[in-house]
Amino acid sequence: MSDQEAKPSTEDLGDKKEGEYIKLKVIGQDSSEIHFKVKMTTHLKKLKESYCQRQGVPMNSLRFLFEGQRIADNHTPKELGMEEEDVIEVYQEQTGGHSTV
C-alpha cells in the first residue's frame, strides 16, 4: 500500500510543476525593474502585453530577450528553461537604418 501512496504523490508533484508559478524580473533599458509572477505554462505574450500596457507603449515597439534570445509570443517559461528570479531584458525595437557599404 505504501507504494501506491507514494506513486500518486509523485504524480501530484509532476502536476504541481506544470502549474507552478515563478517570479520573473523584467528590466528596461533605463534599468527599471518590474516583477511578474507567471505560470510555467503561460505564453509569455501575456507578460509582454502587461509590461507594455504599464509602460504605455505599443508591444511592437519593444523586444524582449532572455539569455540573449528573442522571446516569441508563444514561448512559455518552461520551454525556455526559466527559473525563479530570472531576468528578461527589454530593448527599444530598432527599425529602419541603412547599409554603410
Results as ranks from 00 to 15, higher is better:
V26E: 02
T76G: 04
K17S: 11
D86I: 02
E89M: 09
E5K: 15
Y51Q: 03
D15K: 11
K37P: 03
N74V: 12
K78I: 14
T41P: 07
N74H: 08
A6T: 14
L65F: 08
Y91D: 06
Q69W: 06
R63I: 09
D3E: 09
R70L: 12
G81Y: 01
K16N: 11
F64D: 02
L47Y: 04
K25P: 04
E83N: 10
Y91W: 10
S2D: 14
L47C: 01
H35S: 08
E79L: 11
Y21E: 06
L13K: 13
Q92W: 11
D86F: 00
D73P: 01
D86K: 04
T42R: 05
L47I: 08
K16D: 06
K23N: 09
V26C: 12
S99F: 08
D15S: 09
E89F: 10
M59E: 11
Y91K: 05
K37T: 03
I88M: 05
Y21A: 07
I71P: 03
V101K: 07
T76H: 00
S99T: 11
I71A: 01
K16T: 11
I27S: 04
F36Q: 04
L65M: 14
L80E: 02
E93P: 06
Y21R: 09
E79D: 12
E89W: 15
K16C: 08
T76A: 02
Q4E: 06
E85T: 07
Q92I: 08
T95G: 09
L80P: 01
K37E: 03
Y51L: 01
I27N: 09
S99C: 08
K25D: 00
C52Q: 03
V38K: 04
K45A: 13
E79P: 00
T41D: 00
T100I: 09
D73R: 01
M40Y: 10
V90L: 02
V90N: 02
V90K: 02
H43V: 12
E49C: 00
A6E: 08
T10C: 10
I71Y: 01
G28P: 03
Q55N: 10
G28L: 00
N60I: 03
D30E: 08
A6H: 11
E84F: 13
E49I: 04
K45F: 05
L44K: 03
K7W: 07
E49G: 06
A72D: 09
Q29P: 12
F36I: 04
